[in-house]
């Protein structure tokens, strides 16, 4: 396996001798993979995200990004360039008063020659579907659009990984769909490794790997079908099954011949097989 991020025995406490927000974490992410991290508020998923680009340094253990140790200062900027991050609040991550200038912010920090910038900015805005809003002021955009500007800002830095820390939590359904579709496209077309932290079960269904966090460590790790087949355990983690999964599980309990289905399409297909 070609792994791009590796966490070895990682623990993190916000205060010295304080409680551990993550504890003994062992995980690795494959290059080009598409992973969702689930967990209730306070399960340590956001802390884990911030450990993966050196915003937090592990209290114990080691985090490496493409072989570079996040604790090693000489790699700090290289790591953050490689692993971009989108945060929860769309308002609190845009810096400039014009969209283009905001996308330029990261490039300016990296010291990219000004002549190269316009091309990279245009490309990034196009990828995020925000090219037509290039000269708008951020406060006039919708939440979903602001998040896509943030994605463009990260994308212009040519990252290999994008970590989305509950990037859709504050958006309306349409904004959520837009942002997730952009990330799906970036993963598929640009091969960007995506780590998507969320508590929307319906979003999780679309990923190839799910990690469930609880009390600072990994409680479940597998495909959506594997994770969602254990409803009891999910409930113990303060999570819920997606509606269709729950429905198909109930039918199974009533002895109906239906496998676990994750989406309405799945369930309709399975039902059709049995109808005829």
């Amino acid at each position: 396996m070609d792994e791009i991020i590796r966490l070895e025995n990682v623990s993190y406490a916000y205060e010295e001798d304080g409680p551990r927000a993550v504890e003994g974490l062992n995980l690795s992410f494959e290059r080009g993979s598409f992973t969702a991290v689930l967990g209730h508020n306070g399960s340590g998923k956001s802390t884990m995200a911030k450990l993966m680009n050196g915003l937090f340094l592990p209290t114990e253990g080691r985090v490496t990004v493409d072989g570079m140790d996040t604790a090693d200062e000489k790699y700090t900027w290289e790591i953050r360039k490689k692993a971009g991050m989108i945060f929860q609040n769309p308002d609190n991550q845009l810096v400039a008063t014009v969209v283009t200038d905001d996308v330029a912010f990261g490039l300016e920090n990296l010291g990219v020659p000004p002549a190269e910038m316009p091309e990279r900015i245009n490309w990034a805005l196009k990828q995020a579907g925000m090219a037509e809003h290039a000269f708008k002021a951020p406060h006039l955009l919708s939440g979903g659009q602001k998040q896509r500007v943030a994605i463009a800002g990260v994308l212009a830095m040519r990252p290999e990984i994008i970590i989305c820390d509950e990037a859709t939590a504050m958006l309306d359904p349409q904004g959520r769909r837009e942002v997730l579709s952009v990330m799906e496209k970036l993963n598929r077309e640009q091969g960007i490794t995506v780590i998507w932290i969320t508590h929307f079960m319906e979003e999780a269904v679309r990923f190839s790997r799910l990690i469930v966090m609880d009390r600072g460590s990994v409680a479940m790790d597998g495909t959506p079908a594997e994770v969602f087949s254990d409803e009891e355990k999910l409930e113990r983690m303060h999570l819920r099954l997606p509606v269709m999964a729950r429905l198909s599980m109930k039918l199974r309990k009533e002895n109906a011949d239906i496998p676990l289905c994750l989406t309405a399409e799945d369930l309709a297909r399975e039902a059709e097989k049995r109808w005829n």
């Binding site: 680009n53 953050r80 912010f105 990261g106 830095m157």
Partner: peptide, 17 residues
């Protein structure tokens, strides 16, 4: 935090659009 994540480290070595 968002600025740091985007490699902001003060004015040194910064270019401008």
């Amino acid at each position: 935090m968002a600025m740091e994540a985007r490699c902001y480290h003060g004015g040194e070595g910064r270019t401008r659009l």
